[in-house]
Simulated assay, not measured.
Amino acid sequence: KKNIAKNAKTLGKAWRDLNPALDESEDYDKFLPHYEKMLEATDTVNAPWHLIADDDPRSARLEVFTKIADAIEKAVQMPVEPASDKRTAATYDVLSKIDANKELTKEEYKEKLDKYQKKLTQLQIEMFKAQIPVVIGFEGWDAAGKGGAIRRLTAALDPLGFHVHPIAAPNVVEKQFHYQWRFWTKLPQPGNIAIFDRTWYGRVMVERIEGFAKPQEWQRAYDEIKDMEAQWSEHGIAIAKFWLQIDKDEQLRRFNDRQADPNKQWKITDEDWRNRDKWDAYEAAVNEMLVRTDTSYAPWTVVEGNNKYYARLKVLKTVIDLFERKLAEKQQ
């Protein structure tokens, strides 16, 4: 109150509340418990609050500068490498247990594809009415069928209600920001669907394998990604993540088919062959990713992809189940 009176006297008519609706001077006791709750709930080892008495402004300023200097010195002295992960490669063993050879006839595929797509068309309308946003992410081996699965999914959707984001290497602008920034900017509006062809998981796969991220950067990314997805979920976003799994022989067959077909040669590049040579390194990274980032609010669905018909239907059915579950939760 003394400070407010001092400002009014010093500034005269120039003094005014920028937002009278949030004026604390008349409701100090009402604001106080909320600030206390905020401080208690968000005080962490990595981002601690410093409570500074401001009765003496000069002493308070000195303490502020001291805390900042201490924090900088602490950051500079921190070890570059994080503590090593005690878990072994065997802990991250998911893909070896997946049988990618799920069979489905063309006749079964056509029948169920029509059924699932009609169901999705109706569910998209219901999701829009309920104003539930959706994020669907696709990852998988090169030539695993991500594009085909996305095309069958979007064929059932109203184009006004979804957007497909093909993710490549970050551009000059995106490199200036945290790696998650470009995904935050693409979040869907309420009732809309954002589909990502490649995702934020590049941090713990290609950036890890190719050395674009330092070890301490990609190692901490697992928790960063889970935190990000948790925030999305708490905001009300429905999340589905797909890993399309094919075996090494099937990938080779598809690579050769693309190379032999003039209409598909654009799909195969020298980089695809180079990545294939690093199959074991990528498999280890994928296994760790699947184990460490599978959560109740953003679970991974591993899709057996040697048979494209089976893979596409599994994607559609998983999205249908997600939509129905979120609509039921909304009605509770």
Rank of each mutant, 00 (worst) to 15 (best):
R220L: 06
E36F: 03
G12D: 09
V64N: 13
A240G: 10
M78H: 13
Y92R: 11
N101P: 00
K267S: 12
D277I: 02
E217W: 06
W181A: 11
I125Y: 12
D54V: 10
A71Q: 15
K314R: 12
N263C: 07
D27L: 12
Q219W: 03
F255G: 08
H178F: 15
N7A: 15
A53N: 13
E250I: 13
I246P: 14
P166D: 07
F242H: 09
L316V: 00
G161Q: 03
E210K: 07
W232A: 10
E73I: 09
A47C: 08
L313P: 05
T318N: 08
K330M: 12
L51D: 05
K226P: 00
H235G: 11
D114S: 13
R253A: 13
V291P: 08
W181F: 15
Q124P: 00
H50G: 00
L32N: 05
E40V: 01
A5I: 11
K2Y: 10
V319N: 00
D223I: 09
I136E: 02
S25F: 10
A281D: 15
I150F: 06
K248I: 10
E224H: 06
A71Y: 12
K9T: 10
Q251Y: 09
D29L: 14
L104N: 06
E234V: 11
I209N: 07
I193N: 05
R254M: 14
D142H: 07
D56W: 09
T293Q: 09
A213G: 02
M289S: 06
Q176F: 01
E36G: 14
D27S: 11
K106F: 09
L252Q: 13
N7K: 14
K267C: 12
A14T: 11
K37V: 03
L316R: 02
R58N: 12
E108G: 10
N306H: 08
E324Y: 03
A60N: 12
N306C: 04
A41K: 15
N46T: 07
E210R: 01
W232H: 05
T185F: 00
D56F: 08
R152T: 10
V315Q: 00
K1V: 07
K326D: 09
S25G: 04
T121K: 14
F212G: 02
T301A: 10
E288L: 00
W49Q: 03
Y35V: 07
F138Y: 15
D23A: 14
K112D: 13
A90L: 14
R276E: 06
W181K: 06
K129E: 09
R151C: 00
E224K: 06
A155G: 14
E271K: 13
A260I: 08
A5C: 06
I52A: 06
W243V: 04
E210H: 01
G12N: 10
A21M: 02
A298D: 03
D54R: 12
R61G: 08
Y201S: 06
E26W: 03
R325Q: 15
L39W: 01
V315W: 01
Y179D: 04
G145T: 12
T269H: 05
W15S: 03
A238G: 14
N306L: 03
V303E: 04
K2W: 11
M127V: 09
D85S: 07
D158K: 02
Q189E: 13
F242T: 04
T269L: 06
